[in-house]
Lab assay of single mutants.
Amino acid sequence: QKEELKEKAKEAVKRGNKDKARELLKRAGISEEEAKKIIKKIE
């Protein structure tokens, strides 16, 4: 489940939808700070 949400978040970032990505990562139980780092890494 968590990995699936991370994959979806990756796709969202690639489409330029960072808010959606952050939302998905939060749903995966990832903190706001972690989510920001992950999104930065994907960009």
Rank of each mutant, 00 (worst) to 15 (best):
Q1C: 14
Q1N: 13
K2I: 15
K2C: 15
K2Y: 15
K2V: 14
K2Q: 13
K2A: 13
K2L: 15
K2N: 11
E3G: 07
E3H: 10
E3P: 04
E3Y: 08
E4C: 13
E4A: 13
E4Y: 14
E4Q: 10
E4N: 10
E4L: 13
L5N: 03
L5H: 03
K6M: 15
K6A: 09
K6E: 11
E7W: 08
E7V: 06
E7Q: 11
E7D: 08
E7T: 08
E7R: 12
E7N: 11
E7G: 04
E7P: 00
K8D: 05
K8R: 12
K8E: 10
K8I: 08
A9N: 02
A9K: 00
A9D: 01
A9M: 03
A9R: 00
A9I: 14
A9W: 05
K10R: 13
K10N: 05
K10Q: 07
E11D: 09
E11N: 06
E11Q: 09
E11C: 09
E11W: 06
A12L: 14
A12F: 11
A12N: 03
A12K: 02
A12P: 04
A12Y: 13
A12V: 02
A12W: 12
V13H: 04
V13S: 02
V13G: 02
V13K: 02
V13A: 08
K14H: 11
K14M: 14
K14Y: 09
K14G: 06
K14Q: 10
R15S: 13
R15K: 11
R15T: 10
R15I: 09
R15A: 15
G16I: 02
G16P: 01
G16T: 02
G16M: 04
G16Q: 02
N17I: 04
N17E: 14
K18A: 08
K18V: 14
K18S: 09
K18Q: 08
K18Y: 15
K18C: 14
D19G: 07
D19R: 12
D19L: 09
D19A: 11
D19N: 09
K20R: 11
K20C: 12
A21C: 08
A21L: 06
R22T: 11
R22C: 14
R22I: 15
R22L: 15
E23F: 02
E23G: 03
E23S: 05
E23T: 03
E23W: 05
L24D: 03
L24I: 08
L24N: 01
L25H: 00
L25D: 02
L25V: 00
L25K: 01
L25Q: 00
K26T: 10
K26C: 10
R27G: 06
R27P: 02
R27H: 10
R27F: 09
R27K: 13
A28K: 01
A28H: 03
A28G: 05
A28C: 12
G29M: 01
G29R: 00
G29P: 00
G29K: 02
G29V: 00
I30D: 00
I30P: 00
I30R: 00
I30A: 05
I30K: 04
I30S: 03
S31G: 09
S31L: 05
S31A: 06
S31D: 10
S31F: 03
E32L: 08
E32R: 05
E32Q: 06
E32P: 08
E32W: 08
E33S: 09
E33F: 06
E33I: 07
E34P: 00
E34I: 05
E34L: 06
E34C: 13
E34F: 04
E34S: 04
E34H: 05
A35W: 04
A35D: 00
A35V: 10
A35K: 01
A35Y: 04
A35H: 02
A35C: 05
K36M: 14
K36V: 13
K36I: 14
K37V: 12
K37N: 12
K37L: 12
I38C: 06
I38Q: 03
I38P: 00
I38T: 02
I38R: 00
I38M: 09
I39L: 08
I39M: 06
I39Q: 01
I39E: 00
I39S: 01
I39D: 00
I39G: 01
K40M: 14
K40C: 11
K40E: 15
K40N: 13
K40G: 09
K41R: 11
K41I: 12
K41N: 13
K41D: 14
K41G: 11
K41W: 13
I42K: 03
I42M: 12
I42H: 06
I42Y: 14
I42N: 03
E43L: 11
E43M: 09
E43K: 04
E43W: 08
E43G: 05
